[in-house]
């Protein structure tokens, strides 16, 4: 049996309703496209646990993350997710290696092992030479690589990508796509983007459109 992320949630805000249901199987990536304001980021925040739906359920195989009717809501730090933000959102006070080691520290990994794992993660995204650099000294593409390495640090089963390529120029795009493809191998991916070409490049499970808070093929 293949793992899958099953989501059916509804969230209502003052000027905004998000009502979506979908399923993504392991090794697949669902691409969600839509205009800005359609609720793309909110969708990822729901999956990551940064937002609580009004009704619905999110489960990863046997593990129930959210079941509002059943009174269950798993805190973000207890979900097996990695989140990559559009603008990287690196911790400004930590070096690149420190950023990547942060989730490991939270998971209780020892200092020496943390350092080794952070180095190998940075190597995987082609950012090892940047290990001691502060985020302020990095380019947009470099920051995004570090952010991907950070999101992979806990080896999450679900990788959530919020416009990971939007801030990258065309020259850097190809290389970063390769990094993302490699990162998504064997995981469940959810990509939100307003660019159809990014959705096509990464959306192995297909592309759906989010408009006015609802999904359409």
């Amino acid at each position: 049996m293949v793992d899958s992320l099953v989501t059916a949630v509804r969230l209502e805000r003052r000027h905004f309703v998000l009502d979506v249901a979908f399923e993504v199987a392991s090794g697949q990536t669902l691409a969600v496209v839509g205009p800005s304001g359609a609720g793309k980021s909110t969708l990822l925040r729901l999956l990551a646990g940064l937002e609580r739906p009004d009704t619905g359920r999110i489960s990863l195989d046997e593990s129930v993350w959210v079941d509002i009717a059943g009174g269950r809501f798993l805190a973000p730090e207890r979900r097996e997710v990695g989140l990559v933000f559009q603008d990287a959102a690196l911790f400004p006070h930590l070096t690149a290696a420190g950023n990547v080691a942060f989730p490991l520290e939270a998971a209780g990994v020892g200092r020496r092992q943390r350092r080794a794992q952070a180095a190998s993660l940075l190597e995987r995204v082609g950012a090892l030479p940047l290990a001691e650099a502060r985020p302020g000294a990095l380019s947009g593409g470099e920051r995004q690589r570090v952010a991907i390495a950070r999101a992979l640090a806990r080896d999450p089963r679900v990788l959530l990508l919020d416009e990971p390529l939007s801030a990258i120029d065309d020259a850097g795009r190809g290389a970063l796509l390769d990094v993302l493809r490699e990162a998504l191998i064997g995981r469940i991916g959810v990509l939100v983007t307003h660019r159809l070409e990014d959705a096509r490049a990464l959306g192995s499970a297909g592309t759906v459109v989010l408009r006015d808070g609802r999904l359409a093929d």
């Binding site: 925040r45 990551a48 730090e77 959102a89 911790f91 989730p103």
Partner: peptide, 28 residues
């Protein structure tokens, strides 16, 4: 930046770690 808080939580940081290791140093 509120996204730093989101990043910390999605990195597995609980409220205490978020406060001590991210909020305090960033606001230092």
């Amino acid at each position: 930046d509120p996204r730093l808080e989101d990043a910390a939580r999605s990195c597995g940081a609980g409220p205490t770690r978020l406060f001590l290791r991210v909020a305090v140093p960033v606001a230092a």
